[in-house]
Structures are given as structure tokens and as C-alpha cells.
Amino acid sequence: MVNIISQADTVELCYENVSGSCVKTSYSPGPRAILYAVLGFGAVLAVFGNLLVITAILHFKQLHTPTNFLIASLACADFLVGVTVMPFSTMRSMESCWYFGDSYCKFHTCFDTSFCFASLFHLCCISVDRYIAVTAPVSYPTKFTVSVSGICIVLSWFFLLFYLLTGANEEGIEELVVALTCVGGCRAPLNQNWVLLCFLLFFLPTVAIVFIYDKIFLVAKHQARKIESTAGQVQSSSESYRERVAKRERKAAKPLGTAVAAFLLSWLPYIIDAVIDAYMNFITPPYAYEILVWCVYYNSTIKLIVSGKVLRSDSSTTNLFLEEAD
């Protein structure tokens, strides 16, 4: 950080001649352009990549399935992160200043938290959908219907309404908020009750996702062994049975493990830091906080690029969680 921030003799402020103005971060031209490009690329990919998914699913009737409705709703949450959060956070992260007014600062904080959690809850619902599809393929169409998918979508978006109706995230820490606030800043500390709530809202779906994907992996291993056992009885092969089973197991584990690992790497550092901050009077440096926040933001784009399929012409219909059999 020291190497890329220019060492100016005078301190730049977000609002000159304004008492209590935030200090503006000054970067040298090269690192500044690179950082803007990296953050801007994430926002553009989140917007247009997820818009492509939404458009494809809504336009083509053959894609109107319960699973795809869930994926479209998930893409909508990630699209809204790209539209209402990431561009403004880019400016805040780069300039250390907020130029969009106090009112939108509050909305930005609300959208930031709500849309990211909506994305998390959608992932949990989709994991349940995939588990039913793998373990009960015959009865799956009657178990996970459009109505069930709709209920999952409504529940996934409930946190947004809950956040808007309560909005008591700063209750009890007003003096600390004032001490941390400067003119031209937009960082909303959460009190301990809200942090505990956010931790539970993260922890419970995460445990469910990991548990369900573990079960899916076990089922995939069992099915792989069964398929190879059947195939081994009717044809010979130069590979041993154990080698062929191991290959199928690795193929089944790869997309599941990648999806879960990417999700945990995006979310876990931020959640841990939020808990520590709430109980340690917000000791995290601003630049470290911004890095953790952007890790969560990039979770809204990583689902499209984690498998390397986003640049394919059929990426709009790509299954984000399970590979299709060859």
C-alpha cells in the first residue's frame, strides 16, 4: 500500500475547506489505472454476465424450469449488486470519499448487505434442489415444483424487506459511529446484535450448503462405482476398475468442491472480520475492510467464471453447480 500511494506533502481532502472532511487517498497514475480496471471489470461482469443469464432464462420457454427460475433470481441479486453497489463502492474504495449523498449512503449499505445475503440464500436453495435431483431423479419433478421454487425465491429475498423495516443496525453505538464518521465518508458500523444476526444468517446456510454438497458428492461416488461396476461386466478396459472409479469421483468432486471453496473464500474472511470489529471497536483499517468487502462483491461474478465457461456462446444456459455428463 505504501508503494502505490503517492507521498504528497499536502493532505488531500474529500471536501476542501470543510471542517471534518475525510482524507482522500492519492494513488500514482499506474496503480490507480490498474485498480480502477480491476474493480470496474468486476462490476461490468456482474452486470452483463448476470443480465445474460436472466434474459436467456426468461426468453426461452424451454428454460422455464424450477431450477432455472432459482438461477434467474440468483442472477438478479448478483445483477443488482453490480448495478447499485459495485460502481459506487469502486469510487469509495479508490478515493476514500463518498460523493453520492448521505441518503444514498444508507441505501447503498442496505443494498450491499441485502443483495449479498439474498445471493447466499439462493445458493442454499439451489444446493437443496441439486440434492433432490441427484438422490431422487424419478420423483424430482413432483418434489421440486415451480411453487416450491417460488417459495424459495420469496424466502431468499425476505432479508431485504427485514433490513428495510428494522434498520436498527447502529442502535447503541451512536457515539462510536459519530467518532468514526467524517464528511465525505460512507462506512456504516453494525452493532453487536446485528453482527450476531448476520453471522447466524451466514453460518446456518453455509453449514447447510457444505453438508448438502458433501451428501451430493457421496451419492455421486456411489453412482460412479455402480456405473463402472456395470460397465466392467460387459466390456474390458486397459485401465483398472479402481483407476476408472477414481477418475469419475474426481470429476464429480471438482465442480462441487470449486463452488463451495469459492463461496467460502469470498465470504468467510469478511464475516470473521465483522464479528471481530463489532467486539473490538472497529479496529480494521479502512483499506483492509475494502479488500474484504470486494471479496464478497466478486462472489457475484465468480459463479460465472469459476468454471471458465463464461466466454462460451452457451454460457447463458450453463449449469453453475453441476457438470453435465459427457
Results as ranks from 00 to 15, higher is better:
Q62K: 15
C116P: 03
I212D: 00
C125H: 06
K251R: 13
N193R: 14
S139I: 08
T90V: 12
T284H: 00
V2S: 06
N169D: 15
G308M: 12
I4K: 01
T10G: 02
I291W: 06
N3S: 13
G172T: 06
F211L: 05
L123W: 01
L160W: 15
Y297W: 04
I126Q: 03
T181R: 05
E249P: 00
A46R: 08
L63A: 04
Y287P: 11
V138N: 08
N191P: 13
S313W: 05
A168V: 13
R242F: 02
T230C: 10
S315N: 07
Y131S: 04
T206G: 09
F117W: 09
N193C: 10
S73W: 12
C295E: 00
L196M: 15
N3Y: 10
V146E: 03
K251M: 12
T67D: 07
G232R: 02
K24Y: 06
V207G: 02
S156R: 04
N191Q: 09
H222K: 08
A224D: 03
K215L: 11
T65Y: 08
S114Q: 11
S26R: 14
L190V: 14
F121T: 08
W98K: 12
A252D: 01
I302N: 05
K254Y: 14
L161T: 09
V138Q: 11
E95L: 09
N299E: 06
S236L: 05
L190M: 13
Y241F: 14
G20F: 07
A56S: 09
F111D: 07
T166W: 04
H64Q: 03
C295S: 09
Y36G: 08
H59V: 13
G82Y: 07
V81C: 12
F121A: 06
S93Y: 05
V81G: 03
F159G: 07
F321D: 02
K106Y: 08
F100T: 11
L123N: 12
L176F: 09
H64Y: 01
S300Q: 03
E228A: 06
H108F: 07
I276V: 15
P205C: 05
V23W: 01
L164Q: 05
A46C: 10
S139P: 00
F202M: 12
M86V: 15
W294Q: 08
L161W: 09
V83W: 01
V146R: 11
S96P: 04
T109A: 07
A33S: 13
K24A: 13
L52A: 05
F115N: 06
A259D: 11
A33H: 09
L80Q: 00
T230G: 12
T109S: 09
S300P: 01
V38G: 00
N191D: 05
F159C: 12
T166M: 10
T25G: 02
V177H: 11
N17F: 14
D273R: 13
N169T: 13
L268Y: 04
F203A: 15
L268R: 00
A253F: 15
K106P: 00
T25H: 08
S149V: 08
W294M: 14
S21D: 11
K303H: 13
F162N: 07
K309P: 02
D102P: 07
F144P: 03
T135W: 02
V306Y: 04
V234A: 08
A261I: 14
G49R: 03
F162E: 10
F69M: 15
